[in-house]
């Protein structure tokens, strides 16, 4: 396929590929939220050979677009709403407890967490070197008011701010903070989220214990405590 273009590794070839984690997330989101039958309908409508994606393999990026389009029809929701639901799902569903924990490494409270967002692509790269997330820029415009710019590039990035908005809402809940989000189209391909933190300790939030999921010698053996 695209390999003959002569850009060496990466380049155009990678832009046409979508990381299996992304495809798998989409699949698990539909399965865990709407059930296996619903996913089967989406997969059939998108003419998938196999209705299962592997997190550790790459897929054609246009495949993800097709599935999203089918999911819009099947779920009766706009793409924007689905993407935001996916962001919330990633942080809040019990199956993704690990991911929530990884995000909690960002900071002690929600403001800390916001300030750590610019590190998100770097953190993602530490964990999964070939997972390329758009760069983020956070600016504090007034006390507790922030502008988050997602430097999206190319069609596979479009709507990234929607997913991120879902993530932010879920993480605000996680920290027990009360926030208001507003999404805007940015200059060029950029997407912007305006964030107002009304309260940092609005509710109790969820517990985060650094030592709970380490890979070291665990009393319960490997994988203990995993939901």
């Amino acid at each position: 396929m695209g390999k003959a273009i002569g850009l060496g590794s990466g380049g155009l070839l990678m832009e046409r590929r979508m990381h299996g984690l992304v495809a798998r997330t989409l699949q698990c989101f539909v399965q865990d939220t709407y059930g296996q039958d619903c996913w089967q309908n989406v997969a059939d409508a998108a003419h998938l050979d196999l209705p299962e994606f592997e997190a550790m393999l790459d897929y054609e990026s246009q495949l993800i677009g097709q599935i999203l389009t089918r999911a819009e029809v099947e779920l009766g929701k706009s793409r924007a709403a689905i993407l935001e639901d996916i962001g919330t799902y990633l942080m809040a569903h019990p199956h993704n407890e690990r991911l929530r924990r990884l995000m909690r490494y960002g900071g002690e409270d929600f403001i800390d967490f916001l300030h750590s967002l610019e590190e998100l692509p770097g953190r993602a790269r530490l964990a999964v070197p070939d997972l390329d997330l758009p760069p983020l820029e956070l600016t504090e415009t007034a006390p507790r008011r922030f502008t988050l710019v997602c430097r999206c590039k190319g069609p596979t990035n479009r709507g990234y701010s929607r997913v991120l908005a879902g993530v932010l809402r879920a993480m605000a809940d996680d920290y027990g903070a009360l926030v208001l989000l507003e999404l805007e189209e940015g200059p060029g391909e950029a997407e912007v989220i305006q964030i107002a933190v009304i309260e940092t300790a609005y509710s109790e939030g969820r517990a985060f214990d650094l030592g709970a999921h380490g890979a070291g010698r665990q009393p319960g053996g490997p994988g203990a405590g995993r939901k």
Partner: peptide, 20 residues
């Protein structure tokens, strides 16, 4: 803290890899 993060991320990736 970043090392803890990495250990956790690595464990998750290893598990995904083993499942595959």
């Amino acid at each position: 803290i970043d090392m803890l993060y990495l250990v956790e991320a690595k464990s998750a990736a290893m598990e995904a890899s083993r499942t595959l």
